[in-house]
Write a protein that binds this DNA or RNA. Structure first.
Length: 112
DNA sequence: CGCTTGACGTACA
DNA sequence: TTGTACGCCAAGC
């Protein structure tokens, strides 16, 4: 159907909606979110939205880069905050600040 | 109004 | 193979 009726004309709100839908114990990447929005190269813009989302109550810690690295851990106020949160959700880590994205990757639009 | 920056990703040399 | 450059979109100054 037609492309999703974006109730949110703003790129930001659209990112918020996607991030807020990330299921528990699951993670996604900036590129996938951007691709879901229409431009897979807009990953940087997604990062901007996430930065603004800091403090909006969104599970930003579930958003990682293409390598599963916690790129935005600095915006959380602590380098181990995101890691601790993800571990609390049962997410596996392949390295410090690196989640096993292959085992927990969730794609926007997929049913929970 | 215009240039720079930014929680990324892909392409090319 | 590794490294560098560019592209995307929006906000900030």
């Amino acid at each position: 159907m037609a492309p999703p009726p974006a109730r949110n004309d703003d790129f930001f709100d659209r990112v918020f909606d996607v991030v807020a839908r990330i299921p528990f114990g699951r993670v996604t990447t900036y590129g996938h979110i951007a691709a879901h929005l229409g431009s897979k190269r807009a990953a940087r813009t997604v990062g901007w939205a996430l930065r603004a989302a800091a403090g909006h109550g969104l599970p930003c810690h579930r958003v990682v880069n293409r390598y599963g690295g916690l790129s935005g851990h600095a915006a959380f106020g602590g380098p181990h905050v995101m890691e601790d949160l993800l571990r609390s959700e049962g997410v596996a880590f392949v390295d410090e600040a690196i989640v096993d994205i292959n085992a927990h990757l969730w794609i926007p639009g997929e049913p929970v």
